[in-house]
Design a protein around this nucleic acid. Sequence first.
DNA 1: ACCCTGACATTGA
DNA 2: GTCAATGCCAGGG
Length: 86
Amino acid sequence: MFDAVEEIPPGRVSTYGAIGRLVGVGPRRVARALSQGGGAVPWYRVVRADGSMAEPVRVRQMELLAAEGVPVRNGKVVLAAVGWPG
DNA sequence: ACCCTGACATTGA
DNA sequence: GTCAATGCCAGGG
């Protein structure tokens, strides 16, 4: 699944659910994997289905995304614009 | 084995 | 658009 995450091009964003469907596992499995192993992959390009982000990292994540030119609206990523289906 | 908890998703109010 | 309830999978006590 880390492969799927690395597949996300810069400036684009995907969701836990999307990744989950790609690799055939539940979204929580993805979230868990990233929270533990993460670090070596662009985990910040993965957000919730509604574009919001996880509390523990939401600040950092917003910065990293903004740095790649990802549009954010009210603390939520504009998936309609940069969403990455896979 | 049972219960609680969490970087989640979907549905209905 | 925001909130609560329900379903889901895996870990830890």
